[in-house]
Amino acid sequence: MRIACPYCGPRENGEFSYLGDATPVRPSLEQGVDAMLDYVFLRDNVAGEMQELWYHGGGCRAWLKVTRNTLTHEISAVEAARGAGAAKVGKR
């Protein structure tokens, strides 16, 4: 698999490490236990196009949001993940 890092260009997937679904947003403390349980433990586990977090640790150290099809492994978009998991409430 090759991931086109928006900063570095196409690279071997060995340079990257995987975290998982990029959609969930870390709940703020005020949102409480249920929101955090959902964030930490539950997954949509998409069969199809999925947005996911990859870390280019073997390259520029950028966290990336990669749109990839889990059925075919085809990657349709890669962008910086900056702020992807930031809480939408609370201090910004």
Binding site: S17, L53, G57, W63, A81, A84, G85, A86, A87, K91
Partner: peptide
């Protein structure tokens, strides 16, 4: 050492970009 660096970069870039 490596995993923590990755974790901190995750916190910095993804969770707390502000």
């Amino acid at each position: 050492a490596g995993p923590v660096m990755q974790h901190l970069e995750f916190c910095r870039q993804v969770l707390f970009p502000e």
